[in-house]
Nucleic acid binder design. Structure first.
Lengths: 110, 110
DNA sequence: GGCACGTGCAAAAGATTATTGGCAGGTGCT
DNA sequence: AGCACCTGCCAATAATCTTTTGCACGTGCC
């Protein structure tokens, strides 16, 4: 994942996702290796519910990916890992991204 | 300005600032050259009040800087220009930044 | 059955952002 | 004086994000 293969809107989404202390810590933790939800929650010292919300946001932004696995003793465990990415942000890169932003005047609701 | 001379908290602030379509357009416009508030508002097609708020946020994040100047005919005009920056975001860079995040358990209110 | 693990989801409350509209001030020109 | 520019700020609303609490479901083991 790279700066210029994202649309302006997607880039905004990714940046918004990164701009949160919890999610930054989650990403940091996963950068050290894959992990499953409950364990990750314990390591970060936050509730599982809260972590889930953040993980979903990270996943939607494409920054992490999940795999549901069965442990040896038969428990369903969801492992997350970081998607490698490399965003290079400069005024020029942002100017280019801005060109592909959705015009607020023709946004359609579902 | 670079990724690793920011604290984790500052980085979160910068990312949050960038993660907005209006601000991205403002930055894009200023990347093409300095400009003053009213003119910029006209070019972007947004209200001056709204632009001001976004410019302040950009300035607080250190992404733009302002200069108050007097035009030839005596009018006070505030010119903004982009601060050159180059943020390189990777899982590793974020992991490093996460180490300097403020612990939510010892935040003090004013 | 009762625990100790794992998962998921959703409603509600709290906190923060985004946006508008109005009003203040200033200059110079006719 | 009245108009056309420039600036700044604030109060109120609307919209969005964050966090908690509680419930549901599953497994294996004593």
């Amino acid at each position: 994942m790279q700066t210029d293969d994202l649309t302006g809107d997607d880039l905004v989404g990714v940046l918004a996702t990164l701009a949160n202390p919890h999610r930054m810590r989650v990403l940091a933790a996963l950068a050290g290796g894959r992990n499953y939800v409950s364990q990750l929650a314990r390591e970060l010292g936050i509730s599982r519910a809260l972590l889930q919300v953040h993980l979903k946001r990270l996943e939607k932004a494409g920054l992490v990916s999940a795999t549901l696995e069965l442990s040896e003793d038969g428990k369903a465990m969801k492992f997350y890992e970081v998607t490698p990415f490399e965003l290079h942000l400069t005024p020029q890169a942002l100017a280019a991204a801005a060109l592909t932003l959705t015009d607020p005047n023709d946004v359609e609701k579902d």
